[in-house]
Each structure stands twice: as C-alpha cells, then as structure tokens.
C-alpha cells in the first residue's frame, strides 16, 4: 500500500527552513528579540501569518499588534519560536486535504487550540519553557498522515470497517515507519532542538518512560492533550481521532492534574 520509498519522497518534498525563519530562530536562541523581529520582517508571508494569529480572539491581546517588534515583544522568545514552527507546519498544510475531512481553517483552529492549552500546561506544571514549541511540532503529524494516506482512503476505509486500526499502526505494518519518526525527521530538517524532538517522539505514547525524567511527565501531558483536542466533534467528524493510537495507561499518572489545569469537568 505504502512503501518506504514513497515515504522518503514525501520527506524530500518537505521544505527546509527558509533563510529568514532560520535566521530568526537562531537570533531567538541568542535572546536577540529585536534582531529576530527585524530578520522575520524579511518574510512578508510570515509577518502576515503572525499578525493574523496574535490578533485573533484566541490570543486576546488588548491592542492590535501591527509591527514585527510589537509582536515579538508581546510573545517573548519561546512563544515566538512556537509560532515560527506553527507557521512552518501551516505552510506545508495542503490547500485541499486528501484523507481527513479538514480544511486549512479547521486545521489552524485545532493547531492553535492545541498550542494554547499546551502553553497553559507548560506554565502550570513549570515545564521547561524550551518545550513550548512541542505542540506546534506535533501537529505536523496530522499533515503527514493526510499526505501519506490521501491516495489510499478507500483501502484504509475497508481495513477500518473490519478492524479498529489507527493510521499509525497501519503505516507501521505496511512500511515499518511510524508517524513519530516522520515528524522527528521533519523536526530535524527544521532544526528543532533535539530535546524538543525527543519529547514530541515520546508524546506519541508508544514507548514507556520513567517519571523521574521530567520530559516523560511532559510527554504524558502532551499525549493526553492531543487526544483532548482530537475528541472535539470537528476532529472526530474529520476522522483525525484515528490518526494515532491513544494510550490511556501512558496518561494515567497525569490525568487528575490535567483535568485540573485544562478544566475538564
């Protein structure tokens, strides 16, 4: 159905970081917020995206943010980095989705909601701020899944009529690849910090980890949050709930705290 060669070709098509974004990210790492804003302004599409997002109701800034410097100052280093990765993910999202019944707006809504709740968890749990970008990176998995399964929708539908297989398991069984590996490959191409990529990989919920590792607890939260978002009617209806397999046991140690932070009743 899907071969490793096809997967390789797909990964090749994922663009590397554009020069302006790569430069902006490097300056953010050095804490040079003003220079980062200046470099970012070389990419008008990026600035347009950032304006749209930060001035949306979801971000709730009182004043409209118009200038790159205003935007970067309001966001701070880690949230700015998060939005740069969200933009990269957004830029590889298809105009027309082939497998999931989603559109660009629907995906953006999911991605922003996922990122904002993740920020809330990072803050409440005092998780290292460098992990703020994790949700944005993880959301790339949905796009990868759509691209890979777009031409196999009817085969997958037939398989899923008989067995409750998620797309990740199908992919693994036919090609030996898993989405976590593909997302990690894309993260590598986008120069995402190694620790963040490792957290995202762990948050796919396929490997055991020890709570003594702080990234493990964060990964439990991220896995649970992903399924909180994928349980929303829009995502259920679009078929994204079956993107990967949910691992309830993996999330049990953080369930009560998650309910408290996110406000699940």
């Amino acid at each position: 159905m899907i071969t490793s060669q096809q997967i390789g070709e797909y990964l090749k098509r994922v663009p590397p970081l554009p020069e302006a974004i790569g430069g902006t990210l490097r300056l953010l790492s050095e804490g040079e917020l003003a220079s980062a804003a200046k470099t970012a302004s070389e990419d008008p599409a990026l600035i347009y995206y950032l304006k749209q997002v930060v001035n949306s109701a979801a971000y709730g800034f009182k004043q409209e943010l118009k200038e790159p410097m205003q935007i970067f100052s309001a966001l701070g280093t880690e949230r700015a980095r998060e939005l740069l990765y969200a933009y990269m993910v957004h830029s590889v999202a298809p105009e027309k989705w082939g497998y999931f019944a989603l559109d660009k707006d629907g995906f953006t809504h999911f991605q922003l909601s996922f990122m904002q709740r993740w920020e809330k968890i990072v803050s409440a749990e005092k998780i290292d701020e460098k992990y703020t970008s994790a949700a944005a990176i993880m959301s790339a998995g949905v796009i990868v899944a759509d691209a890979i399964f777009a031409d196999h929708a009817s085969d997958v539908a037939l398989l899923r009529e008989n067995s409750d297989l998620d797309l990740d398991t199908i992919l693994e069984r036919v090609s030996g690849f898993r989405f976590e590996r593909l997302v990690a490959a894309i993260a590598g191409k986008w120069e995402v910090e190694r620790d963040v990529t490792e957290l995202v990989t762990l948050a796919f919920g396929r490997s055991e980890c020890s709570d003594s590792d702080s990234a493990c607890r964060a990964a439990r939260f991220l896995h649970l949050l992903l399924f909180y978002e994928l349980s929303r009617p829009m995502m259920l209806d679009a078929g994204v709930n079956a993107f990967i397999s949910f691992n309830p046991e993996f999330t049990m140690p953080v369930l009560d705290r998650f309910e408290e932070i996110v406000g699940v009743e």
């Binding site: 998620d166 399924f227 994928l230 349980s231 929303r232 009617p233 259920l236 709930n241 949910f246 699940v264």
Partner: peptide
Amino acid sequence: TPQGFLDGNSASG
C-alpha cells in the same frame, strides 16, 4: 471505539 474523551461536547459528534 472512541479514543480520548467522552464528555458532553465530544459525545455529540
């Protein structure tokens, strides 16, 4: 076989 959360919001979909 739903995955994740089954609350008033998700159950409707």
